[in-house]
Amino acid sequence: MSGFARALRGELYLLTRRSSVRRAHLLVVVVAILHVMGSMWVLQVEAGLEGIPADELAAWNFWPRLAAGARAAMYFVELLVLALIAGSFPREIAGGVTRDPATRRISRRALLGARAIGALLLSFSLYGTAVLAAAFPSYLLFDRGPVMEDGDILLEELEILEPVVMALVHGLPSVLALGAFACLLSVAFHRGVVASGVGLGMVLATGIFHEAFGDAAPLWFADTLAGFGPDSFLEQAAGFSQGLLNFYPESFNAVVDTGWWSPLPALVLSVYAALFIFHRRAL
């Protein structure tokens, strides 16, 4: 078996055995469920104040609750990706953990390549967990069907299904790019806290510089992150699907089209830069 295959098997072993990975998934599930249940309670209070049944509110629908619940969980997914991935290598290198695989005929390139794939898998897994964890209680607590307001059909189900599903899938490339970027941070810094902190700072700063970047903004993957991204399509879809029609401007389709591929250059560059830095890193 090649060094890369062994390193990848080791990475999969770590992902399935580490309690921190399990706890991260649990946290995402809890956040998504709490958000969906909390929004149900808020809608019931709102309906009570207006003196109408809750199911007559436009927001009382499976699709907007799924989008909003998933987006709330996405904040945590993005934070956890930064904390778990960016913080891992500095801790492992400082503790000498990487010396054992590095002396078992696994090249540094193979070791980091496997770590990068592990980072992508973890990001994907957390992302999928957020979506499923939001979908399940939304399905149990809310009705599917058209968005109704005052007894009238505001939006047909097909009109909201497409943007919500597209938005959920659209957030994936940027989260994967975040995983690769976190991998780069993990080899660039000697302390996990610093690596995660710098990553979070760069993600949050995207909102500040969003206007200045103009049309080039989506090229920075953090711009289209489902949670923190200023161009979060999920945010738009969540607003639109509960009847806030101004949340989904026609021009946003262009952003979506760009969003499919725009995080990919950052993903590839992050992995290459990480390989370059790790090659000279003292272990």
Binding site: L14, G95, G96, V97, T98, R99, D100, T103, R104
Partner: peptide, 11 residues
Amino acid sequence: IAVALDPPGLD
């Protein structure tokens, strides 16, 4: 080859 350096490098 196998190593046990300092620190022990246990995860």
